[in-house]
Design a protein around this nucleic acid. Structure first.
Length: 565
RNA sequence: GGGCGCGUAGCUCAGUCGGUAGAGCAACUGGCUUUUAACCAGUAGGUCCUAGGUUCGACCCCUAGCGCGCUCACCA
């Protein structure tokens, strides 16, 4: 019975091939690998089953098979001499960038040269000259070399073999230039802050295996060039965005992530269950309907940086969870939202890159306002070759484009034709305005043409970055459109009318402009990253099966095939 | 989900006609006091993704599966 329920649930969740999310009351075997890899080599010829090695592609790495035996042995040696490889306290260190800003050049030394300083960070490698060791140290701000000389560190010298590339250290000494002009701290005191027992990636190539980079971002961040810079820029973009809006009187708010009705966008939701309420809940696909309730509540200018969840495919532009900025402003309309987009894009490009010119996927784009504006209907006519509401012609075009006709919903088909014919031309930045009302259920109709809405989407590099409109605030009209959606039986439509939202509108929502921006994609543009995964610290990845799960699945697969279907 | 590609030492990669594996870096040992992918000499390290099959013999050929990337579909 339970199994049937589970299958039912999974079916609704979409294309899941196996119940990886099944309640896992299976055993976890923590001691399984202990002592395996670090132990003496296997007796040759021994046919006993061997524990699996730490192979990223098929196994979850446990500590003991990632840890290097030599490094573990060093830890034992240290402890035997009373040295703690994982001391409780760090050191009071100066950010490396601060020092580098004050070193000057060998010909004109800066004020930091000749002073005694302390840095802390990761030793990226060791260059051992016998009686002299160089090692670059990396902290969050930059990289600076330390030099350790035998005659200067005589007492410590016998312990130098305890150090390995990847170790975290604190180093104190005088800052000076070497003969080759490299700023260097000549160490007088070196403290191990944490022993790295896992061997770091190859020093020249770094981590290039894309899967490994995503799964072990904590390595990628210091082992791969430019990675941490991307995420620093991302953080600054979020911070600048908040300040940009707050300076205009906006209030940042937080609305629910667990929704009783998945509304505010057309997307397949994730479903979860609240035990005490005994109710299914949806992970939010958009914060829109809650934010507009706050406009009804009189907050007038609100924004939320919201994590949204959509149970759909993954690609270089799609991750199951993504970050969207949504904002709503009373007394504003879609034109005001254009100003915000232009102002924000220009600000971020300038602040992060020092220029409004950006290069992305081999193309050059200017974030200088104002952006181009073209009407949806005109673009449709130009690229699809017919009027958007000429059903016969549009259906013929769809057939010509070999678009699937699974849905008999004309407006969905028309939208597909637009995507197919127009989007490839939207190098942008460009505002596409006045979308048809049938594909804009939350937007206010254009007073000049009720077939259209006061809505735009903003595109750069043929990629949709934002969506905005003058918000529909007529409760009767909103209810009618909701009912249309529900009646459509589209799997991406909400299953029921959000009555509470309609009631909110019944109290009266002022004329309001609303805007949503896909922040991950915006950061892609601003940092020149081709894939959304490169701007997400931890992009969605398939769970690596443990040995136990693999066994379970084999058994389950066998049972399933025996049971027939 | 479809198509294409990939999976070999900790990392980056070679691998001849099918004859049970190599290099560089990392590690270890020795040498070296201004290097910066340090260098020189030596040592050790492999379920060649998994499971079947063909074969006297499979990293190599076949089948199925797993994982990842790209791409298409869906979407933002």
């Amino acid at each position: 019975m339970l199994f049937t329920d589970l299958r039912h649930r999974l079916g609704r969740l979409g294309r899941q091939r196996r119940p990886t999310n099944a309640p896992a009351d299976r055993l976890i075997l923590p001691e399984r690998r202990n002592g395996a890899a670090g132990a003496a080599p296997m007796i040759s010829g021994n046919r006993a089953p061997r524990p699996s090695v730490g192979r990223l592609h098929t196994r979850t790495d446990s500590m003991t098979n990632l840890a290097h035996p030599d490094r573990l042995a060093k830890i034992e040696a240290m402890r035997a001499e009373g040295v703690d490889p994982y001391p409780a306290r760090g050191v009071d260190a100066t950010p490396i960038a601060d020092l580098l800003a004050r070193v000057g050049t060998p010909d004109e030394p800066g004020p930091a040269i000749g002073t005694t300083v302390t840095i802390a960070g990761r030793m990226l490698g060791l260059r051992d000259f016998g009686k002299l060791i160089f090692s670059p140290i990396l902290d969050r701000t930059g990289r600076l070399q330390i030099g350790i000389k035998k005659d200067q560190m005589a007492d410590w010298w016998p312990r130098r073999k305890w150090l390995d590339g990847g170790d975290l250290v604190g180093a104190t000494g005088e800052l000076a230039f070497t003969q080759k002009g490299e700023p260097t701290i000549w160490v007088t005191e070196l403290q191990l802050l944490s022993k790295s027992v896992a061997a770091p990636p190859e020093k020249w190539h770094g981590l290039t295996d894309v899967e490994a980079r995503y799964r072990r971002r904590y390595v990628d961040l210091w082992a791969s060039e430019g990675v941490s810079e991307v995420f620093i820029k991302r953080s600054r973009a979020m911070s600048l965005t908040r300040r940009f809006l707050e300076d205009q009187g906006y209030l940042e708010v937080e609305t629910p992530t667990l929704h009783p009705i998945a509304g505010g966008a057309a997307a397949r939701p994730f479903i979860t269950h609240h035990n005490a309420l005994d109710a299914d809940l949806y992970l939010r696909i958009a914060p829109e309907l809650y934010l507009k309730r706050l406009i009804v509540g009189g907050m007038e200018r609100v924004f939320e940086v919201s994590r949204n969840f959509r149970n759909e495919g993954l690609s270089t532009r799609h991750n199951p969870e993504f970050t969207m900025l949504e904002l709503y402003e009373a007394q504003a309309d879609y034109r005001r939202m254009m100003e915000i987009v232009e102002g924000l894009f220009e600000l971020l490009a300038t602040e992060l890159n020092g220029t409004t010119d950006i290069t992305f996927r081999g193309g050059d784009y200017s974030m200088k306002a104002p952006f181009q504006k073209l009407r949806y209907t005109d673009l449709f006519r130009e690229h699809a070759g017919c009027e958007f509401d000429d059903e016969t012609a549009v259906r013929a075009k769809a057939k010509e484009l070999k678009l699937n006709h699974e849905s008999d919903d004309y407006w969905k088909l028309m939208s597909d034709v637009f995507d197919e014919t127009v989007e490839p031309h939207l190098s942008g930045p460009i505002f596409v305005t006045h979308y048809p009302v049938q594909i804009s259920p939350l937007a206010k109709a254009d007073p000049a043409d009720p077939r259209l809405t006061e809505r735009f989407e903003v595109f750069v590099a043929c990629m949709e970055l934002g969506n905005a409109f003058s918000e529909l605030n007529d409760p009767a009209e909103q209810e009618r459109r909701f009912e249309e959606q529900v009646a459509s039986k589209d799997p991406e439509s909400p299953g029921e009318v959000d009555v509470d939202y309609v009631q909110a509108l019944e109290y009266g929502m002022p004329p309001t402009g609303g805007l949503g921006i896909g922040m991950d994609r915006l950061v892609m543009l601003l940092t020149g990253q081709d894939s959304i995964r490169d701007v997400l610290l931890f992009p969605a990845m398939r769970k690596l099966p443990t040995d136990q799960e693999e066994t379970d699945e084999t058994v389950a697969a066998g049972a399933a095939s025996e049971g027939g279907a």
